[in-house]
Simulated assay, not measured.
Amino acid sequence: MNLATALLVIVVIVYAMVRRFLGEPLSARRLILLPLLLSAYGVYQVAQTDLVHRGADLTALFLGGVLAIAGGALRGRTVRVFVRDGHVWYRYTWATIAVWGGLIALRLGQAAAAVAIGADRPVLTASLVLSLGLSFLGEGAVVGPRAMATGAPFAPRRRERVVAGR
């Protein structure tokens, strides 16, 4: 297993969980751009393995992607969305943390099943970042419409908040 990839995934998950559990302003950038960048980097990592040519690898990647998106959407249903200081905020709940735990266990089980059907471990390792990005996209697909339904604007970018605060 690529230690750098595993550490990157762990750091991103812990960072997101802590910040979002405490509650933070919701920006469109955080909801869409960052998950897209993670997903794109994950696709790049998978492509670098030069091993994705067998049915088992493609099946594992496809099923892993579907599980990531669906799991993110499920997780998004547990996120609290509210208006504070005139902008949309969001906050993870204990249920969100429980869903994270379940999704991590599901990912481990999916990886074990993929290896059992003949998928290559390097492909599965490389797909960790892709799965994380897709999971955040699934979450955003549920949280975004709920945020827009509040009628409040998304939070401005940090630079815009500083300038407006002067």
Rank of each mutant, 00 (worst) to 15 (best):
G76L: 05
R91N: 10
V14Y: 07
Y90T: 06
R77F: 02
A119G: 12
M17A: 15
A73E: 03
W100N: 06
T5D: 01
V9F: 01
G101S: 15
G151M: 05
A112I: 01
P25K: 00
M1W: 01
V9I: 10
Y41G: 07
V162H: 11
L51I: 14
L132V: 11
D57T: 04
G64T: 09
A60N: 08
L3F: 13
G72S: 12
S135R: 04
A40I: 13
G118I: 06
T78W: 07
P145G: 02
Q110C: 15
A119I: 13
L132T: 08
G140N: 05
G101K: 14
L130R: 07
W94T: 11
V66D: 00
A6D: 06
L137N: 01
L67A: 06
L51S: 10
A114I: 06
L58I: 04
G144C: 02
Y90L: 02
R146C: 03
A147V: 02
I97G: 09
V46C: 04
L67V: 11
L124N: 08
V143W: 03
M1T: 03
R84H: 14
E139K: 05
F62E: 01
A6H: 08
V14E: 04
G86N: 01
L61R: 02
T96G: 13
S39R: 03
V99K: 03
Q110P: 12
L61S: 02
G109K: 08
A116V: 10
L106A: 13
M1L: 00
Y92A: 03
A111I: 09
A113H: 00
A47Y: 12
R19V: 15
R158G: 05
L128A: 14
V43P: 05
A28P: 07
I97V: 15
T150W: 00
T49P: 13
T5A: 04
L3R: 12
A155S: 03
T78F: 13
S131R: 11
W100I: 08
A28Q: 14
S131G: 15
G109D: 03
Y92L: 08
V11H: 03
P156C: 11
A95E: 00
V11A: 12
I13Y: 06
R146Y: 00
V52G: 07
G23T: 09
A28I: 15
F154C: 07
G55Y: 10
A95G: 08
Q110K: 14
V123A: 11
I13K: 06
F82I: 01
R19E: 15
N2A: 08
P122A: 01
